[in-house]
Amino acid sequence: MNLSNLTLVNDSTLLSRSKVYQIDRTLYKFLYETDSIRAPQYVFKPLPGQRKVANLQLNHRALTRRVYVVEGMSTKASVVSTQYIQLALPL
């Protein structure tokens, strides 16, 4: 990956679920921000195929120092179809 394609995140309002982020050499997608006003936390999920599998939760200071936007990459929104099966148990 070319380092010229990385831009440091300096504003939390610019986080997007469709962008790809690099944190400590691992690719992540942004999931959500916690509801805390005093100390918001930002939750990221590693992309499929990465060595790390656990979600990462960062505070604002870590966000502005460790998170880079990978320019030219995006996550595709996917619609998951679920099927429900009703089971009947004999009495």
Rank of each mutant, 00 (worst) to 15 (best):
K19W: 03
T26V: 03
Y32D: 13
F30V: 00
N59Q: 12
L56S: 11
L14Q: 12
F44T: 03
F30L: 00
A39S: 15
V53H: 11
A39I: 15
V20C: 04
L63V: 02
Y28H: 05
Y32P: 08
L15I: 03
N59C: 13
S36N: 12
V9F: 02
Y32V: 11
L31S: 12
Q50L: 05
V53D: 10
N55W: 09
K19N: 00
F30K: 01
I23D: 03
V67P: 04
V69L: 00
H60A: 14
L27R: 08
I37D: 13
V69R: 00
R51Q: 14
Y68H: 09
S36V: 08
L8M: 06
E33N: 12
L27H: 05
P48E: 00
R51M: 14
V67M: 02
R17K: 09
D11T: 08
Y28I: 03
A62C: 11
K45V: 03
Q57A: 15
R65Y: 09
V20H: 02
V53N: 10
L8Y: 06
N55V: 08
Q41H: 13
P46A: 06
S12R: 02
F44R: 03
T64A: 09
R51K: 14
T64P: 01
L14S: 11
L56D: 02
V53M: 12
Q50E: 12
L31M: 12
P40E: 01
L14V: 09
L47G: 04
A62K: 11
L8F: 04
L63K: 07
P48F: 02
K19Q: 00
K52C: 10
V67F: 01
Y68R: 00
L58S: 10
G49E: 03
K19M: 06
L8A: 01
F44D: 06
P48V: 06
K52T: 09
K29Q: 00
T34A: 09
L15C: 04
R61L: 13
V67Y: 05
D24P: 02
L56F: 10
D35W: 14
L63Q: 05
A39E: 15
S36Y: 08
D24G: 04
R65F: 10
T64F: 02
H60Y: 14
T64W: 00
S18C: 02
R38Q: 14
Y42I: 09
S18I: 04
L8D: 07
P46H: 00
V53T: 13
E33Q: 14
K19E: 00
D11Y: 01
Y32M: 13
F44I: 06
L58I: 11
T34P: 10
L63A: 06
V69A: 05
Q41V: 14
N59T: 13
L31V: 11
Y68L: 04
A54G: 09
A62R: 11
A39C: 14
E33A: 15
S36K: 08
L58R: 09
A62E: 12
R25M: 07
L47K: 04
D11P: 04
R51N: 15
R51S: 14
A62T: 10
V20Q: 05
T26G: 05
Q50P: 06
Y42M: 07
F44S: 05
L15N: 06
L14T: 13
L14A: 11
V69N: 06
I37F: 14
Y68D: 08
T26W: 05
V20D: 02
L58D: 08
R17C: 03
P48K: 10
Q22H: 00
K29S: 07
N55H: 12
V43Q: 09
V9C: 06
S36F: 08
P46Q: 03
G49S: 05
